[in-house]
Simulated scan of single mutants.
Amino acid sequence: MLIAAAVCPCPPLLVPEVAAGAAPELDGLRAACAEAVRAVAAARPERLIVVGPAERAGRGPHAQGAAGSFRGFGVELDVRLAASPPDGVSVGDDAAGRSPSPPLASSLPLSLAVAAWLLEHAGWDPAVPVEGLGVGEPLAAERCIEVGRELAGRAERIALLVMGDGTACRTLKAPGYLDERAAPFDAEVARALAAADTGALAALDEELAYELKAAGRAPLQVLAGSAEGAPLKGELRYDEAPYGVGYFVASWSS
């Protein structure tokens, strides 16, 4: 049974070490994400399932403690999914904190690696079980909704952390250049998140989302399936398009 959910974007720039000098530009977004994660924790779920876009090789499922890495962005930073390193040592440091350790064998897709960083920095209790699920971006809406229903059908009180960006076509300098259809698409997503409108999320146009590079479409439709019939209320915490990409942060709770 789904009792709560948080929606957060998954750009690597959310991680300050990756953003480097541009990190302060997303401080407000990081704060909103942390608040959303803490709201989920306050609901006291028996398990958290992290859902995010993934390539075929990284779909998982991924167990708690699965490793992810940002070394491809030039920073010696590894993460684990909701698992504390021993003796308080930061992942990527040796036991004395003197130098980076060898890279971890990474299995998490990038979206779930960002989620792992977020859970750590929001203070997620590793005693609460966490698992990760990568969702292929081309996955049909009907199948996404079925996956969500399967998750909600578990006997446990579950919560979701849904990672995914909006469109990448909001400005001329956006990754997908400017597309006039992007702002209305994102506006509908924002409205649906604020209202906990599962029908609107389920009805998102797959082809249009692909054309607008909206990487969060499939994970959002998993959320739609999992929340069908659940008496949840929505709260939109963040709705901006820095760098021309739509980022949303939302909380759904009873």
Rank of each mutant, 00 (worst) to 15 (best):
M1D: 14
A6D: 05
V7G: 10
C8Q: 09
P12S: 04
V18R: 06
A19G: 07
G21W: 14
A23K: 15
E25F: 13
D27S: 14
G28C: 02
L29W: 14
A32Y: 00
A41S: 11
A42F: 09
A42Q: 12
I49K: 05
I49F: 09
I49G: 02
P53E: 11
A54M: 02
E55Q: 10
Q64R: 02
A67S: 13
F70H: 07
R71G: 03
F73D: 05
V75Q: 09
L77D: 04
R80W: 00
R80E: 07
L81C: 04
P86M: 12
S90E: 11
V91G: 00
G92C: 12
S99G: 08
S101M: 14
L104C: 04
S106W: 04
S111W: 10
S111Y: 07
V114N: 06
W117A: 01
L118G: 02
D125F: 07
V128W: 03
V130L: 08
E131P: 07
E131W: 08
E131T: 03
G132E: 05
G132K: 07
G132P: 00
L133S: 09
L133D: 01
G134Y: 09
E142G: 12
R149I: 11
R154Y: 02
L161E: 07
D165S: 14
L178C: 00
D179Y: 04
E180K: 14
F185R: 06
V189D: 10
T198W: 09
A200D: 08
A200K: 10
A203C: 09
D205Q: 06
K213M: 14
A218Q: 05
P219T: 10
V222D: 11
L223P: 03
L223Y: 00
S226F: 00
G229D: 15
E235Q: 15
L236N: 05
R237M: 13
P242N: 10
P242W: 15
G246W: 08
W252G: 13
S254I: 09
S254T: 10
